[in-house]
Amino acid sequence: MTRARVAVLISGRGSNMAALLAAAADPAYPAEIALVLSNRADAAGLAHAAARGVPTAVVESRAFRGDRQGFEAAMEAELARHDIRILALAGFMRVLTAGFVARWEGRMVNIHPSLLPAFPGLDTHARALAAGVRLHGCTVHLVSAGVDEGPILAQAAVPVLDSDTEGSLAARVLAEEHRLYPAALAWLAAGRVSLAGGVVRIADARGATGSLANPLPAAPGLSKG
């Protein structure tokens, strides 16, 4: 089996990167993590990738202040050098230009810690708590020119508990991110993802059944499950 060559782009610790590396350690996984690239030399995830024997590269965004196209050209030179076919953003804290996104259209995925289109941007867990939502979660999507926009591949939801803090909610969502992202990347790498009218279709995907409610109804005459 020829595995798709993937670059994971990070800016920090790269916990989702670590989840992807763990999944790709299985020879049957359809993607090979061929490069971990960061815009920061001090990103903790670089050491983790190197320890796993994965090639790493740094293109310092601070060296290209005011020159986004120059920064992206330097990144693309690294991607070409490693023959990369798919990009997976994992806490990559840079907004990419429309031109870069267009060149990688359909081949670049991102994971975001909310149920998009709710709560794009930063501080998603605090905003979810402040809004009083009962369900929160994460989204894997194809990247488009808008921030945290693009066709959705998969989502996972968790209940928001009355006792939740930002930290406890973040931890519950992160566990789902680590489960969901490797699965979604595998679908893309295996060629199972298609678009119809801007909506993702995944060949042979197993659909979930039932529903998730929080809190569960407990009034007289209402079913609890």
Rank of each mutant, 00 (worst) to 15 (best):
A49I: 00
A49P: 02
A50M: 10
A50D: 00
A50K: 10
A50R: 10
A50I: 05
A51E: 12
A51M: 03
A51H: 01
R52M: 11
G53F: 09
V54I: 13
T56M: 09
T56W: 02
A57N: 07
V58G: 09
V59D: 13
E60A: 12
E60V: 14
S61Q: 15
A63K: 06
F64Q: 12
R65W: 07
R65I: 06
R65F: 05
G66V: 12
G66I: 10
G66K: 00
D67P: 06
D67E: 10
D67C: 09
R68I: 01
R68P: 04
R68E: 13
R68L: 14
Q69E: 13
G70Q: 04
G70V: 02
F71H: 11
F71Y: 15
A77S: 13
A77G: 07
A77D: 01
E78R: 09
L79K: 06
A80Q: 04
H82G: 07
D83R: 15
D83C: 10
D83F: 11
I84K: 09
I84S: 11
I84W: 03
R85D: 14
R85V: 04
I86F: 12
L87C: 14
L87R: 01
L87W: 02
A88P: 15
A88Q: 05
L89D: 09
A90K: 13
A90V: 06
F92D: 03
F92E: 07
M93Q: 08
M93D: 11
M93H: 09
R94Q: 09
V95K: 14
V95R: 05
L96R: 09
T97H: 09
T97V: 03
G99E: 11
G99T: 11
G99N: 08
F100L: 09
F100N: 04
V101G: 03
V101R: 02
V101S: 04
A102L: 01
W104N: 10
W104S: 12
G106T: 02
G106K: 03
G106H: 02
R107G: 01
R107C: 01
R107F: 01
M108P: 09
M108N: 13
V109S: 01
V109Y: 06
V109P: 01
N110V: 08
N110E: 13
I111E: 13
I111S: 08
H112T: 01
L115S: 00
L116R: 03
L116G: 00
P117T: 10
A118F: 10
F119E: 04
F119H: 00
F119V: 09
P120I: 02
P120A: 07
G121D: 01
G121Y: 02
G121F: 07
D123Q: 07
T124V: 15
H125G: 00
H125M: 05
A126T: 11
A130M: 08
A131I: 11
A131Q: 15
G137T: 01
C138D: 02
T139I: 08
H141S: 12
L142P: 00
L142T: 05
V143Q: 13
V143A: 12
V143E: 14
V143W: 14
V143L: 14
S144L: 00
A145H: 13
G146M: 04
G146I: 04
